[in-house]
């Protein structure tokens, strides 16, 4: 059991790294064309304190952006799930907003709140990740079968009771599904801002400095560090999901 949960994913990662190493070696690519995993070790050794500091910067801004997305996204989802009128009114706005590539919003935000790097980064992480949460919560609420409401309404339960006892728990699986998508999106948002804005901080800025100094192994090392953070946060969400919505998981046959 432990082997399948932990051993198999680790084995897959190691196989991936080996395949990567072999690919670079077999093609004889220089490290400015494609760095290999063995090139990355010196990069990590050299910049380890920087990785820790920048990684933390990226992580906390992503998490704050994500929390904001959860709060606002759930709020919008609630409103759209409960009122049909508001849903019809808000949907086109939301879809339009989501259709704008966030890379184009980054310079605008960077200019708007110039110098407020932390705020800007959190803002972009939030903007890019709240949409799936809002949509999933609203769908979860609006697709609640009327019988579920009726069994409580027939007993004279208030709307608030129906929401807490039925609507909210029933929406949790959809919510966590969306949160998994939102986690990776939030990382993209954070890094967009960190890379684009001048004097930025975080892993994105480290990537940018690798680019300006033509330190290609550093750039690849940053990408791997981002992937590691993404995996970490994803599994935090999985753990939360198991705790709060584990009931939705069917025993596999």
């Amino acid at each position: 059991m432990i082997f399948r949960k932990v051993g198999v994913p680790f084995a897959a990662m190691i196989l991936f790294l080996i395949a990567w190493e072999v690919l670079v070696w077999a093609n004889g690519w220089p490290n400015y064309r494609m760095a290999s995993p063995s090139d990355l070790i010196p990069a990590y050794e050299r910049y380890w304190p920087l990785f820790l500091e920048m990684g933390w910067q990226t992580l906390w801004r992503t998490v704050v952006g994500l929390l904001l997305a959860v709060i606002v996204g759930t709020g919008i989802g609630l409103v759209m799930g409960i009122s049909r009128t508001l849903r019809d009114g808000l949907y086109p706005l939301l879809v339009g907003f989501n259709a704008i590539p966030k890379a184009t919003v980054v310079p605008i935000v960077a200019l708007m709140f110039v110098g407020a790097h932390d705020f800007n980064t959190v803002l972009i992480a939030f903007m890019i990740s709240f949409f799936p949460i809002a949509v999933s919560v609203s769908i979860g609420l609006s697709t609640l079968e009327p019988e579920y409401r009726d069994i409580l309404r027939a007993l004279g339960a208030s709307q608030a009771t129906i929401f807490w006892k039925i609507a909210l728990p029933k929406t949790l699986p959809e919510f966590f599904g969306a949160l998994k998508v939102a986690v990776t999106l939030a990382f993209i948002g954070t890094n967009l801002m960190e890379i684009v804005s001048p004097h930025g901080r975080g892993l994105g800025a480290l990537f940018d400095s690798g680019k300006t100094n033509s330190d290609y192994p550093l750039m690849f090392a940053v990408l791997l560090a981002l992937a590691a953070l993404g995996i970490l946060l994803y599994y935090v969400v999985v753990a939360l999901e198991k705790t709060f919505a584990g009931w939705a998981e069917r025993p596999s046959g």
Partner: peptide, 9 residues
């Protein structure tokens, strides 16, 4: 009802 509407959680 026809659908037992039990709460899965």
């Amino acid at each position: 009802f026809q659908n037992p509407v039990l709460l899965e959680w």
